[in-house]
Amino acid sequence: MDVSTPEWDWGELVLASQMPILIMLLLLGAAAKLATVRSDAEPGALARLGPAVLMPGRLRVPALVCCAVVEVVLAGGLLLTTAQPFRWMTVIFFALSTYVLVELRRRRPDAGCGCFGEVSSAPVGLRSIGRTVVLTGMALMSVWAPVPGWTVFAEPTWLVAAGIVVLAVLSPELEEAINRVRYRAPCEQRPSSESASLAKLRASGPWREHAGQLLSAEPADSWRELCWRFFAFENHDKDHVVFAVYLSGMRPAVRVAVVSRESMPEYTTV
């Protein structure tokens, strides 16, 4: 924090101070929207999100993608140039967002704002609208900033922190994120990838003990039951070596058993 930077006077400093926040928020918003579109295996989920609900069904994905692209372009323009069109477009973007949110609240009170994609699924409230009003104000301030955004990133001031605090207070997503961490679905219900469990298995002690005896490094069968994922291998004596990997935690519990072929009932494929 150096208020008396010689090249800048106080007024210019204030004007430029909020640009990092705008740039970061635009990029975050774009990334979250794209993630929502990509993860949307069930098209019904989009029906609850953001201004896209005001669109007909088949235009919802293009609308979200288009919005994300505009955000990236604006963020790039603010970061690298002092060109006025980018700055005025940012003002117009946030002013329009405010209007769209007000409209959304009036027409679809059940829909979330979708500002940060799927995290913003809570219905639009006064706080979300207040946030876009504040952002419009910040964008308006930045119009007359004398420097491109990256210089402010290089020399941040306490005004950035103040801006972040104001926006955090106005963000319902933060509470949502905290709740998601606090009340995470139990691991029985969480999807998990087979390859990640296999990687954890291969980093474990029981694997190192038995890896030398296995016929193949790829499991003959693998399946998941509740919080455990099982990997079945064959060893050189044609016995079954089965590993169970717990699905929660960075260094999960790994159990192993060697089951002789004779003790198994007749094999039936499932």
Binding site: E225, F230, H240, V242, T269, V270
Partner: peptide, 8 residues
């Protein structure tokens, strides 16, 4: 088969 291995 899976049942017996998981139980083991």
């Amino acid at each position: 088969m899976r049942r017996e291995l998981a139980a083991a």
